[in-house]
């Protein structure tokens, strides 16, 4: 049997047997990526919406920076966060290096630009449509942003999902700041790296299959939600 089919069988076996170690790794992966998605939502949604409805000097430069930051190299982000959180670094006294928190921070740095840039795009499209009406109502900057975020919520759910997908699939940054410690900071992607290092390619690919299946299921769910919303809300 070749490696690929072997690993599919292995993936199915692991899922069927509810292998507790795999479950723990998957759960940590999801918890870390969900946390960083929520953090990046807290920053990126208001930021993207604020940029969408504002006109100021340097706005287009800021948008260019934001779009470029969508492709931040994970390893560089990992290294910078590592140096910040290291005992010898400025945030060293909090002792966050090699903890899940450090991984959440690194992922948040990576995906906040994605969330902010895509939110800016989505909200600005709605803003073009709503601007006169909201002005007519005397809706202020803050209330307008609120209205726009709420009215684009289904599209924004997809935006957040893109962020989540990137976070869950990323390894370069979190292996540096998390250290891939068994039971503490070992998530799906870092486990895949480790198993690849050990030459256990079927196991590595089986883990990869599970990761892809989860991300795929989430995206299908989101697409279904969006289609439903489009039908329901126009």
């Amino acid at each position: 049997m070749n490696t690929i089919s072997e690993s599919f069988v292995l993936a199915l076996t692991m899922v069927a047997n509810v292998d507790p170690q795999i479950v723990a790794v998957v759960a940590l992966s999801m918890a870390v990526s969900l946390s960083s998605t929520l953090c990046s939502a807290a920053i990126g949604l208001p930021l993207g919406a604020a940029i969408a409805v504002s006109r100021f000097r340097g706005r287009s430069a800021l948008i260019a920076v934001l779009n470029a930051a969508m492709g931040l190299p994970p390893v560089v982000v990992g290294l910078v966060v590592y140096l910040l959180l290291s005992r010898a670094g400025p945030l060293g006294r909090f002792g966050l290096l090699f903890t899940p928190t450090a991984m959440v921070i690194a992922q948040t740095v990576l995906i906040t630009p994605i969330v902010a840039a895509l939110t800016r795009q989505v909200v600005e499209d709605a803003w073009v449509e709503y601007r006169e009406y909201l002005h007519s109502l005397g809706s202020g900057w803050f209330r307008s942003t609120q209205t726009l975020l709420w009215d684009t919520r289904w599209s924004l759910a997809t935006v957040l999902l893109s962020g989540f997908g990137r976070a869950a699939a990323e390894v370069g940054a979190i292996i540096i700041v998390g250290g891939n410690i068994d039971g503490v900071t070992r998530v799906m992607t870092t486990a895949i790296v480790l198993e690849t290092s050990k030459g256990d390619l079927p196991l590595a690919l089986a883990l990869g299959t599970i990761l892809i299946a989860i991300v795929l299921a989430l995206n299908l769910g989101a697409q279904g939600l969006r289609n439903w919303a489009k039908l329901r809300h126009g």
Binding site: E129, Y130, E132, Y133, S136, L137, D151, T152, H233
Partner: peptide
């Protein structure tokens, strides 16, 4: 100052997704 108690209806109505 533009007063609050005015309203406007547009040629193509702007309706929120609600």
């Amino acid at each position: 100052m533009r007063p609050v108690r005015q309203a406007m209806v547009f040629q193509r109505p702007v309706l929120l997704r609600r």
